[in-house]
């Protein structure tokens, strides 16, 4: 699959063509400067001037709240109605970390059983990534997933170069899409390709990663949640859901029924393992009452259990859990200290 060049002037035409493949979703800057992915934006409202959105694109595949089915109680039983299939999605401007999050969710939602809601949306979606030229200092996508040099989860990756974009088809679907609008794309010249390589090199150099992730699975076995390390580590946490709700690779949800007594819906909503109620069971047994135990759970799930179960670390290095944590808890700092920690045996 070959890289093509899309002149900046053709971007609008291309996006208009893409709109025929489904609902276009792109980053939009709101009045107060807040940037979010919005469905069906006017071309003029789409912004390319963003480091990343606060909310990752996960919400378009696993919405915060989703009706699994509607129900109505009838004589001797109930009727169940599933929601109608939705329009396919075309998401433009997805950062590599968020696209990689989809790769993680793909694995999480297709194990022994498959989640039909996620899978259907994902199958029909087209993900167009935009290379990140200026990662935030809290970013570590290259360190944890090698995303700058080996992107995952997107169909097409755009590198912004002088005068336009180099479009790299990462999937067959992406290649086909570029092929469909041949007229808009040109063959890239050597200078553009060189600029792209330099851009990647610079972005990789701008990131720092202080953790050797390969050592973590063993360490998690060695220092269980009951270790004093975790007790202290959790002290500065306010137990909100920012780290999980803004994570591109978090999957957990809880299910509740909302009903008027006769008819209603079964809804699933994002759930955070940092909430003290997350693991609590009917009857009141709470396997993780301490904040540190919940941190252990979150981090061991992402860095030890997911690699064993799904062959992939469930962290994409987007840095959101550091940037938006009310306490600016730093996941890398924690993992580094964790690897260095040695339990004092009495």
């Amino acid at each position: 699959m070959n890289m093509k060049f899309l002149p900046a002037a053709s971007l609008k035409d291309w996006l208009d063509l893409l709109r025929s493949h489904g609902t276009l979703i792109a980053p939009v800057k709101e009045k107060d400067g807040f940037i979010a992915f919005r469905p069906d934006p006017d071309f003029e409202d789409i912004t390319l001037d963003y480091q990343n959105t606060v909310r990752p694109i996960r919400e378009f595949f696993l919405p915060h709240s989703e009706t699994l089915f509607n129900f109505e109680t009838v004589q001797n039983g109930f009727d169940i109605e599933r929601n109608k299939p939705e329009e396919p999605l075309v998401i433009f401007g997805v950062r590599l970390c968020d696209a990689c999050g989809l790769e993680a969710l793909d694995r999480a939602f297709s194990g022994k059983y498959t989640d039909p809601y996620y899978t259907e949306r994902r199958k029909n979606a087209l993900i167009i990534s935009l290379f990140c030229t200026e990662p935030h200092p809290a970013c570590f996508c290259e360190g944890v997933q090698k995303l700058m040099t080996g992107p995952k989860g997107a169909d097409i990756l755009l590198y912004p170069v002088e005068g336009g974009f180099l479009a790299d088809p990462l999937s067959e679907k992406g290649d086909k899409i570029i092929g469909e609008s041949k007229k808009l794309f040109k063959e890239p010249d050597a200078e553009q390709l060189k600029a792209k390589d330099a851009m990647v090199e610079k972005a990789v150099g701008a990131q720092s990663c202080i953790v050797d992730f390969s050592l973590l699975p063993e360490k998690f076995k060695e220092l269980p949640p009951s270790s004093p390390f975790w007790r202290e580590e959790g002290e500065g946490c306010v137990s909100c859901g920012v780290c999980s709700f803004l994570c591109p690779a978090c999957q957990c949800f809880s299910v509740q029924d909302i009903s008027d007594g006769k008819s209603g819906k079964r809804v699933r909503c994002w759930a955070t393992c940092q909430d003290c109620r997350f693991a609590k069971m009917a009857g009141g047994i709470d396997p993780r009452p301490e904040k540190g135990e919940r941190h252990y759970h979150r981090l061991s799930h992402k860095f030890a259990d997911a690699p064993a179960r799904n062959d992939m670390i469930f962290c994409t290095g987007c840095g959101r859990c550091i940037r938006y944590c009310p306490s600016h808890h730093d996941v890398l700092e924690t993992l580094k200290k964790f690897l260095e920690y040695e339990e004092v045996k009495p």
Binding site: F34, R55, H64, V238, C240, G241, F245, L246, Q256, C269
Partner: peptide, 26 residues
């Protein structure tokens, strides 16, 4: 419309000390 119900507002509030919050009540 931006809210993701992460409860950071409540969790960070120094005066939200209820053991069981009305918002979690089932």
């Amino acid at each position: 419309s931006r809210c993701i119900r992460c409860n950071a507002c409540r969790q960070a509030c120094p005066l939200c000390f209820c053991e069981e919050c009305v918002m979690d009540e089932a």
